[in-house]
């Protein structure tokens, strides 16, 4: 299953949007944080987990999703949110903690919720899986269309919630896809040091469901495998577990000195940066001209600029609004 040209264009544009967004956030995040790095300072306080390098996973999967489909994401959710169609301006404003943000500043970067496109997060490892199973169950009981995709990291496969939700999805044959973004590192602990098996996709056998491992951080391969899994779920044939080799080009969070990485690892990863790689491939395949790809990049940059300006110019929430929206 190869994507049509408009899908390829969408995938490239969203990857670039995601990266440019992270580049902008990275720069603004450091405002007010030097010479002394204090996480509480600057226009974007708090932890910041950037998704640079992991864009292929988000676009390869979300290219198959409609707004009605459900996605649960993690503490590192920007690329997934952008690919799912979360409102970029409101998301930027949320990351800045502004009144115009998705939740008016109550959630911040680890808690991106957009009901319009059925996007939710949990900042706790593997805890998006239960809600994804429940959304899938809801569609199954109601006979309504839609699948649920739970994005998790490779470290999440060692959480109890992973086993419970996988088993539940399998025993009830829920329309759910679990996508493991294997970026090789759980903060400073390597997958090798934390995980008894090489490929978490092998765990699918424990639930009697298909499992796929996709090497190479390759958006087209991800598109193909995710497409089959999502179609399978839409046909009512149950869940699939997909593990994808991807790369975290940034630290776990901003301020991470990354001393745990072997020497030269980052250089190797940047050499494999999936965005220039996709550009080169689209040109080599003759599907796109330089000008077409430049246009997509310009469009992406314009969307990011607009979102960042919107966030910067938006007002802070009223402090006392902290006391509202606890209950419906």
């Amino acid at each position: 299953m190869q994507p049509a040209k408009d899908t390829l264009a969408w995938m490239y544009e969203k990857m670039v949007t995601s990266r440019r967004f992270e580049n902008a956030i990275e720069k603004i995040y450091m405002e007010g944080k030097s010479p002394v790095f204090n996480m509480a300072d600057g226009p974007i306080p708090g932890e910041m987990h950037l998704s640079d390098g992991q864009e292929p996973v988000a676009v390869g999967v979300c290219a198959h999703l409609n707004p009605e489909d459900v996605v649960t994401a993690t503490h590192r959710p920007h690329h997934q949110a952008i690919a799912k169609g979360v409102d970029l301006k409101k998301m930027a404003a949320e990351i800045f903690g502004k009144a115009t943000g998705l939740s008016g500043g109550r959630g911040g970067h680890m808690h991106i919720f957009d009901a319009d496109v059925n996007f939710a997060c949990s900042g706790i490892i593997a805890q998006g899986m239960g809600p994804a199973a429940g959304a899938a169950l809801s569609r199954q009981i109601q006979g309504k269309p839609g699948v649920a995709v739970s994005f998790i990291g490779e470290g999440a496969a060692n959480q109890g919630a992973f086993h419970e939700a996988m088993n539940l999805a399998a025993v009830w044959k829920l329309p759910m896809i679990v996508v493991v973004e294997d970026n090789a590192w759980g903060i400073s602990v390597s997958k090798e040091a934390s995980t008894a098996i090489q490929r978490n996709s092998d765990r699918a056998a424990a639930y009697g469901i298909p499992g796929h491992y996709i090497p190479g951080n390759d958006p087209l391969k991800i598109y193909e495998v995710a497409g089959e899994a999502i179609e399978r779920a839409r046909r009512g044939e149950g869940p699939t577990l997909i593990e994808i080799e991807t790369y975290r080009l940034a630290g776990h969070f901003m301020g991470d000195a990354e001393g745990y990485r072997p020497e030269g690892e980052k250089d190797g990863l940047f050499a494999k940066d999936p965005i220039p790689a996709m550009r080169a491939k689209l040109l080599a395949d003759g599907d796109f001209t330089e000008a077409e790809l430049d246009d997509l990049e310009n469009k992406a940059q314009a969307a990011v600029d607009e979102a960042i300006s919107f966030a910067r110019e938006s007002a802070d929430p009223k402090p006392e609004d902290a006391l509202t929206a606890v209950f419906a």
Partner: peptide, 28 residues
């Protein structure tokens, strides 16, 4: 059985699932 379900002994799984179903318009 569709609306009255015995679950596995997986409280994290099925309570989490209830949250997702509730957000999706059900009343678990």
């Amino acid at each position: 059985k569709e609306r009255v379900r015995d679950t596995p002994i997986s409280e994290t799984g099925f309570i989490g699932a209830a949250v997702g179903a509730a957000q999706d318009g059900m009343k678990p």
